[in-house]
Amino acid sequence: MKLKWISYPYIIWMVIFILLPIFLILFYSVTYSTNEGIGFTLEYFQRFFEPIYINVLWRSLKLALTSTGVCLLMGYPMAMILAGKDIKKRNVMVLLFVIPMWMNFLLRTYAWMTLLERNGILNSFLGLLGLSHMDFLYNEGAVILGMVYNFLPFMVLPIYSVLIKIDKSLIEAAGDLGANVPTIFRKVIFPLSLPGVLSGITMVFMPAVTTFVIPRLLGGGQFTLIGNLIEQQFLFVGDWGFGSAVSVIMLLLILISMGIMGKYEKEQEGGGLW
C-alpha cells in the first residue's frame, strides 16, 4: 500500500506538539537568561541533589512503592477470583471495575475526604461504636489510600487478563504429578502471570510517583511529592529552570523504568490493557 502520505499531518503535529515541547523543557533546564543573553548551566540539576529535594524524590518513591505493593497484595487475589468465574459473570465484574473510573477522579478523591475527615462518616460510625475519633486525613496513610483507590483497577485488570489465558491443562498436569495447591501456585500460576504483574506494577507505579493532586487533597498540602515540586516551581515560585530540570529527571526516571519493563516484556508475552 502506498498510503504513507496520509500520516503526514500527524507527523507535523507530532513534531510541534510532542518533540518541540520536550526540547523546550530540556532547553530551559540547562540555560539561564540574563540581560546580556542566554548561557549554559547545570546549576538546576546540581540543586536537585540538595538534601531537601533529594528527600522529596525519596518520599515520592517510598509512597509510590508502598501503594504499588498494597495494590499488588489487594489486586492479585481479586484477579484470581475474577479469573475463576465463568465468562458471563467475569465480564460483568470487569465492567464493575471500570465503571468507577467514569466518575471524575477529583470528585472521587474528594468524596474520601467526606468519609475520612474529623467529623466525617467513618468517625461518626466509630463514635456510634463508642470508640474515640481518629485522624484519618492529612497523613501518609491517607495519601497511600488515595493512590491505592485510584490505581487499583490498573493492577487487577492486567493480572486478570494474563490469568485467563493460562492453559488449564498445565495446572491439571501439575496436580496429576503430585503438586499440592500452594506448590501449583508458586511453581506454575505465579510465574506464568508475571507479565501481567509487571504491567500492573508499571501502570500503578508511574501515575503514583508523579501525582500531585492526591497528596494535595488527602495529604492536606503538607506532603510535597515530586509532582508538587514541579507545580510549585512553575505556578508559585516562577523558577522555570529548576522546574524543567525536575521534569527532565522525572522523564528520565520514567524512560528508565520503561526500558527495564520493556526488556522483560520482550522475553515474555505482554499483558497490558491493549
Binding site: I11, I16, V209, G227, E231, L251
Partner: peptide, 24 residues
C-alpha cells in the same frame, strides 16, 4: 521511530506533558 515518539505522551507523566505543552 514514529511509534516510539507516539508512546511518549502515553507513558510520560501528565504533569510533564502539561508543563511542556504550557511552555510550547
Amino acid at each position: 521511530i514514529v511509534m516510539n515518539l507516539t508512546y511518549l505522551p502515553v507513558l510520560n507523566a501528565d504533569i510533564v506533558t502539561g508543563i511542556s505543552l504550557m511552555l510550547l
